[in-house]
Design a protein around this nucleic acid. Structure first.
Length: 254
DNA sequence: GGTTCACCTGACGCTCGGCA
DNA sequence: TGCCGAGCGTCAGGTGAACC
């Protein structure tokens, strides 16, 4: 682990301990023992996202857990995870997870989403993304989710996605033109045993990221080689109901 | 009780430059 | 080369009220 990663690790630890309070970039920089200017750049370089968005992801991950495992109302949940305005919480949650807090709870954590194409971009002549997902111990992994996202953090609805039985080759068609990230997640096989039960933590989760890639009109983009590694604390939390989406996709397929 | 929306604020991204 | 400070424009996120 480099000195930068150690500093980011300290800051992320501070976020996990204090996400329910007001945490500023100055606080995090002080914990990391760097100036706030340099810290922001360093954090972005190590994690791929800004400190503020990382903190938001932690808060939403905790909110998902509270919504599924308790009967606390949305207002109380918003306060418990650090939001002073339930309006902000509701809006942020809906954008990141794909459904509102009450929909998420009523669906038991299974977000009935579809991999959507975006029509706002130049998508009349979409491209193809292809590549391969590898892992150090592929036999220990269950099904693999591969999605195309606008950013480095898996939130909102994926532009396009696919599910593999195991690490291996993939192909995603009809990807709109633009600059995207390809993100992949997989659970260890023992956790897949409980696939139908909503998953609300990162235990046994392996992640891989690639990008940004530029998809051109009618062009096959790749190979995109994704390597799944066990999720570290400094990897961005999975905000989107990715695993739950995977479950619903499998339900449809089955 | 929960969501949406307009407005506002502060964090962020980018860039340049200084220092050791 | 690594660390840090600062200015400035942009935009994500926070607030609070209206609405369902």
């Amino acid at each position: 682990m480099t000195s930068s990663e150690r500093a980011v690790d300290r800051a992320v630890g501070y976020m996990f301990e204090n996400f329910n309070e007001k945490v500023t970039v100055e606080d995090l920089a002080r914990v990391a023992m760097f100036s706030k200017f340099y810290f922001t750049r360093m954090f972005q370089r190590v994690t791929g996202i800004s400190p503020g968005r990382f903190l938001t992801a932690i808060r939403l991950q905790e909110a998902k857990r509270l919504l599924l495992t308790t009967s606390i109302n949305v207002i109380e949940v918003s306060h418990l995870v650090g939001y002073s305005s339930v309006g902000t919480f509701s809006t942020t949650f809906s954008k990141a997870v794909g459904v509102s807090p009450t929909e998420y709870r009523s669906g038991g954590g299974v977000a009935q989403l579809r991999c959507q194409s975006r029509t706002s971009r130049n998508s009349h002549n979409p491209g193809v993304v292809h590549g391969k997902v590898t892992a150090e111990h592929p036999d220990e992994l269950g099904v693999v989710f591969v999605g195309v996202f606008p950013g480095r953090i898996p939130q909102g609805r994926p532009i396009k996605c696919t599910v593999l039985d195991r690490p291996g080759h993939f192909r995603i068609d009809d990807v709109p033109n633009g600059e995207w990230y390809v993100l992949s997640h997989s659970l260890s096989k023992d956790r897949n045993e409980v696939l139908r039960v909503p998953v609300d933590d990162d235990l046994g989760l392996s992640v891989g990221a690639y990008g940004p890639i530029t998809v051109g009109a009618g062009v096959s983009c790749g190979p995109v080689n994704l390597t799944l590694t066990p999720k570290r604390m400094i990897d961005p939390p999975v905000v989107l109901a990715l695993l739950e989406i995977r479950s619903s996709i499998l339900t449809e397929a089955g």
